[in-house]
């Protein structure tokens, strides 16, 4: 589904990614791991087209992804969340979710300004859809709450819900459980599994919590200093000497957390 071939990225003198190649197949949950500064988020930013790679290719469903601009990536079916929350703090939960539905809006500026029936209906339908998802997760009480006032874990969940409303085929999750409690992590794991299994959404995620990654992903890709040093099933990765080496260099605490 998603294929990175020899992808390289250089910022000034820093080689952030060096000929990275890996693939995500339809229906998989793939974990992208590695010590801090290994280039995981850079991979996401390249897929989101925020950066122009200095070398290599990205293809999605056989199509060259590098042809598109950032706002067009979502139309191909790739949606992402952000490491440090991509929610809009001065909007309510419902409004944030409706931004997720942005590409389903098509009313012209004029029809919106005049409040024509089509524009009103569109707004009503999208609102209903977002409310449905909130109700599905038993969070409808939060609809009119401002995002900045909510607990971190809840915000993470809302960002994921917003991504789902953008109808992804491939979901990129940047540290989905960072800063969450154990109970929240378990709930998030089940939710991601369900998204993947019931809704048929492929997932690529970056996460530091090893037990979370090992318990959820079908396959894991390990980056270190901008290069892929291993990929395979969780059991294989746990045995891989080079991976253990890379993580030992960083300190055991964060690797085994």
């Amino acid at each position: 589904m998603l294929a990175l071939e020899d992808l390289s990225m250089r910022f000034g003198g820093l080689q952030a990614l060096d000929r990275v190649s890996f693939e995500v197949k339809e229906g998989e949950i793939v974990g992208l791991i590695g010590p801090n500064g290994a280039g995981k988020t850079t991979v996401f930013n390249l897929i989101s087209r925020f950066y122009e790679p200095t070398g290599g290719r990205i293809s999605f469903c056989g199509e060259n992804l590098l042809r598109w601009r950032p706002h067009q990536v979502v139309e191909r079916g790739i949606v992402r969340t952000f490491q440090l929350l991509g929610l809009f703090p001065y909007m309510t939960v419902l409004e944030n979710l409706m931004i997720g539905e942005h590409r389903d809006f098509g009313g012209s500026l004029l029809s919106v300004a005049l409040g024509l029936p089509r524009a009103r209906r569109e707004e009503r339908d999208r609102r209903a859809q977002a409310l449905w998802l909130l109700r599905f997760l038993k969070m409808e009480a939060l609809a009119d709450a401002f995002v900045f006032a909510l607990p971190y874990g809840t915000q993470k969940l809302i960002e994921l819900m917003r991504a789902l409303l953008a109808r992804p085929r491939l979901l990129l999750l940047d540290e989905p459980v960072a800063g969450m409690t154990v109970a929240e992590k378990t709930a998030m794991r089940e939710f991601i599994r369900r998204i993947n299994h019931d809704w048929g959404i492929t997932v690529l995620l970056v996460e530091h919590d090893m037990s979370f990654v090992m318990g959820l992903c079908n396959r894991i890709v390990v980056l270190n200093y901008g290069r892929v040093i291993a990929q395979g099933r969780p059991e294989e990765i746990q045995q891989n000497a080079e991976v253990i080496e890379a993580y030992l260099g960083e300190g055991v605490g964060s690797a085994r957390a």
């Binding site: 989101s48 925020f50 950032p70 979502v74 952000f82 991509g86 809009f88 997720g100 942005h102 590409r103």
Partner: peptide, 10 residues
Amino acid sequence: DKPAAAEALG
């Protein structure tokens, strides 16, 4: 507020 997130959502 968050140009990158906005663009990523289309």
